[in-house]
Design a protein around this nucleic acid. Structure first.
Lengths: 338, 338
DNA sequence: AGCGCCCCAGAAATCGTTTGCTGGAGGGCT
DNA sequence: AGCCCTCCAGCAAACGATTTCTGGGGCGCT
């Protein structure tokens, strides 16, 4: 058990040539069962594991793919990752996750290191304000890439996303039908693409239905921030009775704020979330939200990348999935007339 | 912008030899400023990025490290990851995360793929019931490895952990001092090492103080499962007035269950969590918990690995950090006598 | 015996780097 | 002129695999 065994060691122990040993390990060529067994036994006892770097260097195929995401702690993202891994690992790939923390600078460094390691492919949620040069970096190096959720105006990569503006149209309409006129959009940071799309959907309904002046309120996408933001929003605009949120974490934080302020979500103020994370169903009260299936999204994402690896040329494939309105207890008819 | 440029291309364009170009890129050797500039310019215009695989293959040093963890969605883990990345990336490493989902089978496959890629080091939370062979796999391949949180009885690797039994001793004592006698331990799955240690601490206090018969209740470590488990526990053992939890998610789920059953956490039944995740402070009611600092833990973890990479030989370094009792509103004095 | 086929050995090229070596061109110094 | 010193070219050997090629031993078949 000295150093890491190489193929040559295995071959020597099995009494065959390295060429033959390689054939056996790769399952290629015509090898008799007897020889095959000898080699496999030798590899077993030596705990031989081939060096993927050397192999990839010569043969070119690379079964390691990366998934760069903006926020690893988000349970929605975690489920997407899980869906991606299921499919890709069953195809013999190793998927490793990089957490950019939505910082373009950090993302750039990570992607450069990623390219140095020359993996087989990349799944990527670009950080907000990702410069065009970062996209070009990937493209120039011919790395099979699928963007996810955001694409920042770069349309040369395959893409899997959510119909954001359609979803917030649905959410806002839902509130409007319930009688709400003072509806605000809450959550997310400026210049995030998905948020902009969601705001667009919200604004369009506000305008078409001639509701009150739109209010858009920023906040980081975690529960605590959502709570603080909702408190500030209520203070600044006490007339607001409906809130369309940029994510479930925000929405849960908002509900928290409302109950703390003595108001009842779904009665005094209606709140719609986005994502349908697991907590949404068991929250108090259970959250009305725009549901998308993260696992399904993950599988689609993985399949898109596999297709691209198989067929490097060809126009970018873009697919978007719809979010579905899931009504629970945080939305209700307007009680007090505004 | 044809294919990926190699060092030879850069050298040719700069009018120098590959050896010289390599020296410049690595910053080694004695090279005049004029030549250096020529090479750097050529690399710039060609968008040259060195191939880390080929480099690592020859030189042996590898600046990619992996972090295999059992549950990526857990916010506590996410903060640890963040702490690890901060430190390691500032040292020029790329850290990629693998999600074993606490499945020994999946973990095994991932680690084998990881070894094939021969990275520079590994941070590892072993899945529950990880077989000894998996540990030996890593050891045999001489991969600098630091286990985190769990070590499953394998003491040949460096380790960073939490003083679990000390922590649950503190938590249980806290409840006992408040007058509780019927205290249960809730959460986690059988045969998970950290859980066993926490149970041990709990049991020791129950015995020393001659409290009621101990009750240990299983549950997966997410909020929804915790809620269900607490409901079942209350039905089976209505006399229980104190609960020591295996994690904050469980504890939050338990509080949820209590309020749904019309009981008030901290008044009717006292609950202590573990981890002090961000939600703990803003939950209703705010959660009493055993706090450990995930970022600090992450930095210590990273530093331990760096030390090991720098000095591959030598006895394993083990360090454990203490958890601190943070009293909030879910624990209170026993009101109705048992 | 002769022929053909299956299986494999052995050698060599290749992937993109790093690293050590030899040796030479040029400059500054005595 | 002679000598040393700096800077770099050019060659070559690694690293650990894959892949192709030639060639030959052994077997079965006619």
């Amino acid at each position: 058990m000295a150093q890491r065994p190489k193929l040559e060691t295995v071959a020597k122990r099995a009494g065959v040539s390295v060429a033959t040993a390689s054939q056996v390990m790769r399952g290629t060529g015509r090898i008799s069962d007897k020889t095959r067994k000898k080699v496999l036994d030798a590899a077993q006892t030596l705990h031989y594991v081939p060096d993927a770097r050397a192999a990839a260097m010569r043969s070119g195929d690379n079964r390691e793919i990366g998934f760069t995401i903006h926020q690893i702690a988000n349970p929605f993202n975690a489920e997407v990752i899980s869906g991606v891994s299921d499919l890709l690992e069953s195809e013999g790939y190793l998927v490793s996750i990089l957490d950019s923390q939505d910082d373009p600078e950090r993302q750039r460094r990570q992607l450069e290191a990623f390219i140095r390691g020359s993996r087989g492919g990349l799944l990527w949620v670009p950080a907000h304000d990702t410069p065009k040069s970062t996209f070009e970096l990937l493209r120039n190096h011919r790395i099979p890439t699928v963007t996810f959720l955001r694409r920042e105006g770069f349309d040369e990569f395959d893409h899997v996303g959510i119909r954001n503006s359609e979803a917030t149209r649905t959410a806002t309409t839902h509130l409007a039908v319930l009688g709400h006129r003072n509806i605000a959009f809450l959550g997310g940071l400026a210049n995030v693409e998905t948020r902009n799309q969601r705001i667009a959907g919200y604004l369009s309904v506000m305008q078409e239905r001639d509701l009150a002046d739109p209010i858009v309120w920023e906040s980081p996408d975690d529960k605590m921030s959502g709570m603080k933001a909702m408190m500030a929003l209520q203070k600044a605009h006490p007339e607001v009775t409906g809130v369309v949120c940029n994510g479930d974490m925000i929405a849960l934080g908002a509900c928290l704020a409302l109950t703390r302020m003595g108001k009842q979500p779904g009665k005094d103020v209606s709140v719609v979330g986005f994502d349908n994370i697991q907590d949404a169903a068991v929250a108090t009260p259970p959250l009305t939200t725009m549901a998308v299936s993260p696992r399904q999204l993950g599988r689609r994402l993985a399949r898109t990348l596999l297709d691209r690896i198989r067929e490097p040329e060809g126009p970018p494939a873009v697919s978007e999935v719809s979010a579905e309105l899931t009504v629970r207890d945080t939305t209700g008819a307007l009680t007090r007339p505004s």
